[in-house]
Simulated scan of single mutants.
Amino acid sequence: MRLLIDIGNTNLHWTLDGPGTAWSVASVRHSGGIPPDLIAAWERLSPPERILVSHVAGPGLAESLTRVARALWRVEPEFVRVIQGYGGIQVAYSQPERLGVDRWLALLAARRLHQEATLILDAGTAATFDLLLADGRHLGGLILPGIELMRSSLFAKTQIPPPAEPIKAGLAYWGTDTQSAIALGSIQALAATAERLYDRLAAESGSTPWLVLTGGDAGRIGPFLLRPWTQIADLVLRGLAEAGALDRT
Rank of each mutant, 00 (worst) to 15 (best):
Q90Y: 02
V25P: 11
P166N: 13
S31G: 04
G175I: 10
L240G: 12
W73I: 07
T125L: 12
L240V: 12
T128P: 07
H30K: 10
E78N: 07
I39T: 14
A126Q: 09
L131K: 07
F129D: 07
P47W: 09
G222C: 05
T10F: 11
R151A: 03
G20R: 03
P162I: 01
L99A: 08
I34Y: 12
Q179D: 10
Y198S: 00
S207I: 00
A164N: 06
M1Q: 05
R137P: 02
P223W: 08
G8Q: 04
L131F: 05
G85A: 07
T176N: 15
G32P: 01
L113H: 08
P162G: 10
I232M: 11
G206E: 05
K157M: 09
G215P: 00
A181I: 02
E63Q: 14
E43R: 15
Y86Q: 05
L3R: 10
P59C: 14
L190T: 06
V25K: 11
L72I: 10
V68P: 13
Q95A: 15
G216I: 11
R67P: 01
L235F: 06
E78D: 15
E43Q: 15
L240Q: 11
W104I: 07
R67S: 12
D177C: 05
D234S: 14
W73P: 05
S152T: 08
A26M: 06
A189C: 01
L72K: 08
A243C: 05
A243H: 07
E148V: 03
T214N: 02
V25Q: 11
Y86A: 10
G136C: 08
R2K: 12
L131N: 00
A41E: 14
P209Y: 02
L190H: 04
R2S: 10
